[in-house]
Each structure stands twice: as structure tokens, then as C-alpha cells.
Write a protein that binds this DNA or RNA. Sequence first.
DNA 1: AACTTATGAAACATTTTATGTTACATAAAA
DNA 2: TTTTATGTAACATAAAATGTTTCATAAGTT
Lengths: 154, 154
Amino acid sequence: MYLKVSTQNINPQYSTEREKMRKDSRLSRMLHILIHMAQMEQAATSEFIATMLNTNPVVVRRTMACLREKGYVTSVKGHGGGWRLNVALEDITLLDIHNALGESSVFTIGLTDEHTECIIEKAVNREIGDALAASEALLLRRFGEVTLAQLALI
Amino acid sequence: MYLKVSTQNINPQYSTEREKMRKDSRLSRMLHILIHMAQMEQAATSEFIATMLNTNPVVVRRTMACLREKGYVTSVKGHGGGWRLNVALEDITLLDIHNALGESSVFTIGLTDEHTECIIEKAVNREIGDALAASEALLLRRFGEVTLAQLALI
DNA sequence: AACTTATGAAACATTTTATGTTACATAAAA
DNA sequence: TTTTATGTAACATAAAATGTTTCATAAGTT
């Protein structure tokens, strides 16, 4: 329960040039930090990672937990604890991390489902849906072809 | 200024299975209604369109205004007024409507720009960015190959 | 001319998502 | 036992997409 007071609300609702929507930057952030972790001796604390990513430790734990579930990193509590890479960079692709983060869809474009009986709506949704599927397949295929080791070489 | 009281806030923050985010359904909606409009005698009022799309007239005007700017539809005020298709369905592609709606990006995935000097971040962003660009290019190429007339034939 | 039917547009509200923040429990090393 | 970590729940914030209210304006109708 909170009170919102005095909003600016400069809303470009009628503008053709929309402002960019907020993006999910977890993939970019995690790839970045994983490569750095591969070059580190000690475990990286959430605090340390948070500083690197300009965020805070809880956000780091939340996101890294997704990677731990898949075995890409391990976490250790207490003194000298933190996060460690558990797999060689050669053995992780962008797709692996993308999948670990569990994003449901990569698109901002959605379909409608108001009239499941309308053949026009069906045709529209099938066409858009097929195009999105093909586009996503290409993206994921490419993600699957690149390992973190390749990125680390620059 | 408003008061938010007693939120449910079932937040799947730690869950791997994220809920689907809100999607921009304007493309789907506009294609749907444009094809219907091609089969109509009279002008379609915002009220009429809103009922078809399960939304309200102001949202319709807001979105249709984007299409009017590009000349795909015209609007007429007063009695018997409303919206009319201004171009044959054969001459409009999905890409035309997509562009008219002015979506800045089709992806929920974003890059980071915290350390523009870090070569690792640069490499990560270039790889993700290139992959997104290729994926989007495929999507738009496909959108450009399909006319509304083709969809209308089912 | 008065009335009715439309769009045009500003202002505000609501909902959802991504992210940020606070607080406390727990585990492990010093 | 103190310090340093993670684990997690709960709450807060900001921005985007959409919805809603309200009034101005234009154009037919009576």
C-alpha cells in the first residue's frame, strides 16, 4: 500500500515516436559478469557483482539463482563465500543463459484473443504468430551457436 | 494522485517460469479491423471499432491516428462520420502497419550501457545486438511480404 | 438556429512488468 | 561470538500499455 503523489506524467500517447520501453537486461548483465567471474580467483560476492552492474545485491541473488538452478554457478555462504562459475566458458552458450533466465517471450508484440471465432482474427494471428516464431527461432539458433568463451576472446 | 490499497502482489520473482508480460497488441488489432473495414459500406465509428476490439473509443482514435498520418485511413467528423480505409488491401503490407504504429523495438531483451569502456560488455552487447538485428530483419522482411489482401482471403 | 453525432485531444487512472529496497533468517568462517 | 555471506519474503518505485473522463470542435439533421 503506497501513496503516489504529484506525477509528472508527460505521456507521448499520440506521438509516433514512442519512447523505448523498459527492457529485460538480465541476459546482457549475466553474460558480462560470468565472463568476468571466469577471470577471477576468489568467489564474487553479490555485493561486488551488484557494484559492477550498478544494481544491488538482492537483484543479483535473484538473477544468479536462476543460473544456479541449471548448474552454471554455485553459491557459498559465509566468510569468503559468494558466487563461482561452475562450468567452463567453452561449455556455455548464450542460449543456455537465455533459457536459464526463463524469459517467456522475447517480443513486445502480442496477439489478441477477443474473437476466437472470427476467421479474420485467426488469419491475422496465424500470420503474425508464424512470423514471430520464425524470427525467434533464428534468434535462438544464433544464441546457441555462440559460447561465452568466444565472447571472452573479444 | 491515487491511493493503492491492498495489493495481491503475487510476485513470481524467483520463479523460473515468468508470467507473460503485457504485449503491444495494436498490430494484431489494427490488421483485424482494417480487413473488416474493407468489407463495410459505411464509415466505421470509433465506438463501433471499440466494441469490436473490446476496448474504448479513445484508444481507437489514438491508434487509428497513427494510420491516418500515413494515409492508410481517413477520418470524418460529425453525422455519418468515422473511419474509412483509404488504400486497397492489396497495397498494404503488415510491415506498413507495423511501421505506422511506430514501435521502437520488437524485443523485450535489452542491452546494458553501464560500462561503455569495458571490452567484455562491448563484446556481449555487440553479439546480442547483432543477433537481435538479424532476427528483427527477418521478421520485418516477412511482414513486408504479406499484404492485408492475402490475409483477407484466409 | 438548435440538436445530435462524430472526431481531436488533454488530463488522469489503472495494471503490469522490471527493477530496486528493506528486513530478517541462516550458514559458515574468523 | 562476531563477522561475512547468501536466502527469502515483503514492500516500493518507475515506466509502459491501456483504459477513462471530460470538453472542444466540426459537420450533418431537424
